[in-house]
Amino acid sequence: MIIEILKLLIIPGIFFLFTLALFYQWLDRRFLARLQNRRGPMHTGSHGTLQPLADFIKLLAKEDIEPEAVDKPVFRGVPILLSTISITALFFIPIWGVKAFVHFEGDLIFMTFLMTLIAILAFLGGWSSTNRFSTIGGLRAAMQTLGYEVPLSLAFIGPAIVAKSLSISKIVEWQASTGIWAIILNPLGFGIAIIALLAELEKVPFDLPEAETELVAGWQTEFSGRKLALLRFAFDLELVLAAGLITSLFLGGPAGPFYNIPWVGVIWFFIKTTIVVLILSNLRGLFARFRIDQMVSGCWKYLVPLAIIQIIFLQLVLG
C-alpha cells in the first residue's frame, strides 16, 4: 500500500511527471529559440533549465484576480480539472516498462475521451470568463476540436488494429514483443497524429484559441496568478502526454534493446519523446497561423481522407 502511494507520488507518479513537463517546456523553448537564431532562456539554472520552474513559482506567487462577471465555480474549476485530467491521462502511458501504471482493455478509447474533455474545458474556461476575447477563444477551441478530433481518433485506431487491442499498454507490449514499431505500418497515421496533436496543444499553426495578435490570450485572457500557473502547467503536461502517446502508439514506447532491465526502458522512452518534442517544436517554427475556417475545412478535406486511406491500407496488408 505504502509503496503504491509512493509510486503514485514520486517515481512514475506526479513528481516525475512534473519534472518531465518542466524539462520539455525548457527543451521546446530552447530548441525553438535556436531555430529562430535566438538563445532562449539563459540565466536561471545551467542554460536556463530552471526557468520553467521559476516561471511556475513566480506565477504562483502573483496576485490572483477574479473579475466580477465571471462564472466563479467553473472559472475556478477549469485550471484544477485541466491539470488533474492531464496527469490522469499520463498514468495510462507506459513509461517504466511495457505496462502503464493504470491499464485496462479499452483505455485508448478512454484516452481520446480525456483529450476531448481537455478541449471542452478550454471552451468552458473561455465561456465562464465572459470576456469577449475569451468567449471567442473558447468557441474557437470548440470549433477546432470538431476539426482534429476525428482524424486524431482514426490515427489512433491504426496501431490498435495492428496490435489487435484497444489498450495502450497492450499495443506497446505487442510492439515490444514483435519488435515491429507501429509507425512502419502507419506512416500516414503518424503524420496525422502529429498534426492533430499540434492542434490539441494549441500551438502554431493551430494556436487559434489563444492567437495573441487577434485575441489577446484567447480563452486564457482572464486567468491570472495561481490559475494561470496551473493552466500553463497543464499545457506542459499535455506536451508530455502528446509526446508520450505518439511514442507509445507509433514508436514502441519504452521498447528497445535491453528494455527489460530497469531504467533502460525509461531511457528509451525519454529519447523517443525528446525526438517527438523536437519535431513538434520544429513544426511550430515553420508555419503561419491558419484561420479557423481554413483549419476546420483543411482537416476534413485532407486529414480525414488520409486517415481513412491509412486504415484501408492496414486492412489490406493485414488481410
Binding site: 529559440a33 535556436r34 531555430l35 529562430q36 537564431n37 535566438r38 538563445r39 539563459m42 520544429n282 517554427g285 515553420l286
Partner: peptide, 20 residues
Amino acid sequence: MAMERELLRHLVKKPATIIY
C-alpha cells in the same frame, strides 16, 4: 514547409542575440 532548410541551418549557427 518552405523554411525548413533555413531553420535547420540556424540550428548550428551562433545565435544572433547576445547575453547583454
